[in-house]
Design a protein around this nucleic acid. Structure first.
Lengths: 336, 336
DNA sequence: CTGAAAGCGCTTACAG
DNA sequence: CTGAAAGCGCTTACAG
């Protein structure tokens, strides 16, 4: 490993001067700057992160905390993660994975080790113990998602209202009046008070009422077979339903099967639109699923940017709400 | 932040003594140990990782390098990742995400910054530039996967022979004699010389010949619709095929659809078994997919353990080959 | 504009 | 068994 001292020696300057040009913290003569830069290039110098961290008391590390036990990471969460890691790197930060339990145990220990400058929270609950812990500890953090009352906190989340509204626009314009929403209640992996579910349910109930549509909402375990069963039963008991919205990543493809099991076709007899999933799910479906696609790339990036802005300049970026985007597919059609 | 000095002051000992008890590096009287431990508990002491890293020249950080650009992370890779992060934490290491390009550019810079002690490589190619870079740099690394000639390197990988063999056992015992293998050639996201694909193809060709079975192998883009199309065509042109093995996570569910489009049923007319995917895919399918399940949890853990063992004690654990495990489903049945 | 020197919080020979 | 002190590689007032 080549150190700053090596660079200083080769350039014939002091170690302080090297530091100034590396960090751009003080004005330096073009001539000396050139010498230093040449030396750095020749020696392929990279400053030691641990030493720097110790000196400035900042690590340039961000922790991504997610509850492995309570909630299996799906492909949608994966997009947050990939995007967040990339965004962090772009700002010269590194993202460290903290697969810990949702109960905040262990969180404190990790924080006091001075390993990270800030924390990024995924899979946030309406009443989340981790948020309480982080607030108390005074640790800078940002959420991808939000609690019931996130005022004063930093976050980026999906705009559930706009998302449901856009989906309803599509379906209404195709003549659908009788809708069903399949969510994810009571199944394995369901977190009580999980934001996306609660907010989608609320938005759906309100918007459907406002628009004078008829609707039915059911919960469903997070498996395709559960999705298939529930869909088959649903269509049997409510033959007037012509469109189904699904917010349950694991059950989504099962819903498609369930329609067929009910002796009906997608999209001729029943339209299906998925809410908040990744394009990946769409490509796994045949016919391709129409969906309101989770803005995973954008949210992951925003979460990191909000956090980094706060860390570097104290800026408290206002909450960012991003709607899911419409991804055309072959699973919706005019109402029969 | 409370420091070792704080603990030393409160316990009435020197800072060196505190270090000895924290690290267990030297014998300490039970009495003084007790005093120190009491002080640590009272002050909730956690030693500063940056300072320690600087002193011992080890960061307790591991980098997980994966090619974001070239290969989208799927749910199977996600399992490696989660498991690796958990295993790292268990050994008091942290896993940092390095979503970099597959061409090894940038890898060197990151290494020389002294941020990590070792590197874990995912999605390894038969001829992988990153491996060359790491070898040259002398950076300790372990692969989840392996190159064409991994001798001398540390790795854990799937035992493709055993996996294909086990799948063939199942199908043969059900009376299947005409098999098809659908892989992932030429599509988006396909890496040239991607180990799992090449090794599965080889094993399949060899084992099928040894057993005197008839077979046909086709490549397929990584989407469900491509899977559906190819399957439909395949079954049209080769009506004698009674069982399909799929090694293409994205196309798998499409294959199920393709069978139906060909006017046949799964599993009554055609058996389908997936190779190397996660249980997650099975739950998204209806009927549930029978599969040889990727040992993601185990491989992620092994990769970290192999690397950590080497870092801590210089132990070069022999290569670990783990077969996929059979996951019963409802997609295979006796040959018609 | 440049440099000498203290300090960040640990670890670890070395001495006692 | 315990401690004084040097050193890990940086940053940053402070002096010149």
């Amino acid at each position: 490993m080549t150190t700053m001292q090596d660079v200083a020696d080769r350039a014939g300057v002091s170690i302080a001067t090297v530091s100034y040009v590396v960090n751009g913290t003080k004005a330096v003569t073009p001539a000396t700057r050139a010498k230093v830069e040449a030396a750095m290039a020749a020696l392929n110098f990279q400053r030691n992160r641990a030493a720097r961290a110790l000196a400035v008391r900042r690590t340039q590390n961000l922790a991504l905390v997610y509850p492995v036990v309570e909630r299996r990471l799906g492909t949608t969460s994966l997009e947050f993660l990939t995007s967040a890691a990339t965004a962090a790197n772009r700002s010269d930060y590194h993202l460290t994975l903290w697969p810990i339990s949702n109960d905040a145990v262990g969180l404190t220990d990790l924080l006091s080790a001075g390993l990270v400058d800030g924390v990024l929270l995924m899979e946030v609950l309406l009443d989340d113990p981790r948020v309480t812990t982080l607030r108390q500890a005074g640790t800078p953090f940002a959420m991808i998602g939000r609690t019931a009352d996130p005022s004063g906190d930093l976050y980026a989340d999906i705009d559930f209202d706009a998302t449901v509204s856009a989906a309803l626009d599509r379906l209404e314009s195709l003549g659908h009046r009788h809708l069903a929403l399949i969510g994810e209640r009571g199944g394995t992996g369901a977190l009580p008070g999980y934001g996306p579910q609660v907010r989608t349910d609320e938005a759906f109930a309100r918007l459907v009422a406002e628009r004078g549509l008829r609707s039915i909402t059911v919960g469903c375990e997070q498996t395709a077979s559960a999705g298939a069963d529930i869909t088959q039963r649903l269509l049997g008991e409510h033959p007037e339903v012509t469109a189904i919205l699904v917010r349950n990543e694991q059950a989504t493809l099962g819903v498609m099967v369930g329609v067929r099991q009910a002796g009906l076709r997608v999209p001729d007899d029943v339209s299906v639109i998925a809410l908040g999933t990744t394009g990946e799910i769409s490509t796994m479906s045949s016919p391709a699923l129409t969906m309101m696609q989770s803005p995973g790339e954008e949210l992951g990036r925003l979460g990191v940017e909000i956090l980094v802005d706060y860390l570097e300049s104290g800026t408290r970026t206002p909450p960012q709400l991003v709607p899911c985007t419409f991804l055309p597919g072959a699973s919706i059609a005019p109402a029969r």
